[in-house]
């Protein structure tokens, strides 16, 4: 293992401009030669075209039709009707709002801040504590999504551990999954996803030269000032990539919420992926569900573009 990834995001391996500098530019080859060279790419490209690009294209097509799940001879082209319907649909707007709340709470505030806090505490902590904490947080992350859903379902239930602790502290308990389902699933996502940010920030903090923080310390800069004026500016690229990846991951959370609340009670925790699923399968409106999916995909693609721009220099 020569280049173990060291840093944030897929950018952690220093990609650099590839192996290019090491070898001289080969003399001009005949065209057939260069095509043969690209041949090994073909299985991957075919697979990606058929099973990723295909569905994305198909998505963009059926979003503009009234395709239904059953008993329909022909679907017809309906233009922007699905999108117009969506923006008048209170349930859709509710799902957009909940997705926003879920993303801001669990990704931007929760995973990102907690991940940074854990990573910077780990810089100072003693080794056994570091190993223990890392192990626990990462286990939460490696667990299959459905299992994580069950564990947090149990934790937040009326008879669950959280209320047991609140009772013990003489604080009012409640049925979290019923009263504040979006908060419960957001916390669940923080529980499950923080490890990623923690790993990204640990790698980023390790790259800051010791002399810089030590110099600031000697000059009397306190912990918060060092964090604000030195650490954060130095890891800003990692913050950028981490925020992008967290947000993209959070936008597509389905299983966790499905297992914990099924989007309920009512639609109080129905984020866009669950709304999309319900419209397409429970209401049999594939066309409408896909229109919602396309919106989600476009938002995801925009975030993804920002992410690629951040990493562009690395390719």
């Amino acid at each position: 293992m020569t280049t173990a990834p060291q840093q944030a995001g897929p950018d952690l391996t220093k990609v650099g401009p590839g192996p290019a500098p090491h070898h001289p530019v080969p003399p001009r080859r005949p065209r057939t030669r260069s095509l043969t060279r690209l041949l090994p790419l073909s299985p991957a490209v075919i697979l990606l075209l058929l099973f990723l690009a295909g569905p994305i294209g198909y998505c963009a097509y059926i979003a503009f039709t009234d395709l239904q799940l059953t008993g329909q001879a022909h679907s017809s082209f309906v233009g922007f009707a699905n999108f117009r319907a969506a923006f008048k649909d209170e349930e859709f707007l509710n799902a957009v709002w909940l997705t926003l709340v879920f993303t801001v709470l669990s990704s931007l505030i929760g995973q990102n801040t907690l991940g940074l806090a854990l990573a910077s505490l780990m810089q100072r902590a003693s080794k056994p504590v570091r190993t223990l904490v890392g192990g626990i947080v990462i286990t939460a992350w490696v667990l299959p999504e459905v299992v994580a859903g069950f564990l947090l379902y149990a934790f937040f239930r009326r008879e669950g551990t959280l209320n047991a602790i609140l009772d013990w502290l003489h604080l009012p308990s409640q049925n979290w999954l019923f009263t504040l389902p979006i908060l419960a699933v957001s916390f669940a996502n923080v529980w499950r996803g923080t490890a990623f940010s923690m790993l990204v920030y640990t790698a980023a903090l390790n790259e800051i030269p010791k002399e810089i923080t030590e110099a600031a310390e000697v000059d009397g800069a306190g912990g918060w000032r060092r964090m604000w004026h030195i650490t954060l500016p130095m890891i800003r690229r990692s913050i950028g990539t981490n925020l992008m990846l967290n947000t993209l991951q959070t936008l597509s959370v389905f299983g966790l919420i499905w297992v914990m609340t099924r989007g309920g009670p009512g639609d109080k925790s129905q984020t866009l992926p669950l709304f999309m699923y319900e419209q397409a399968f429970q209401n049999s409106m594939i066309g409408y569900g896909t229109a919602v999916a396309l919106l989600l995909l476009v938002v995801g693609a925009l975030f993804s573009l920002v992410y690629v721009r951040l990493l562009r220099t690395e390719v």
Partner: peptide, 25 residues
């Protein structure tokens, strides 16, 4: 370079969003 940038772009697309059309397909 364009190929790798496309790949990088694709790594972070929300796969959840295309499952309904994949099902239909």
């Amino acid at each position: 370079r364009p190929f790798l940038l496309t790949i990088l772009f694709t790594t972070s697309l929300p796969i959840t969003a295309i499952m309904v059309p994949v099902y239909a397909l």
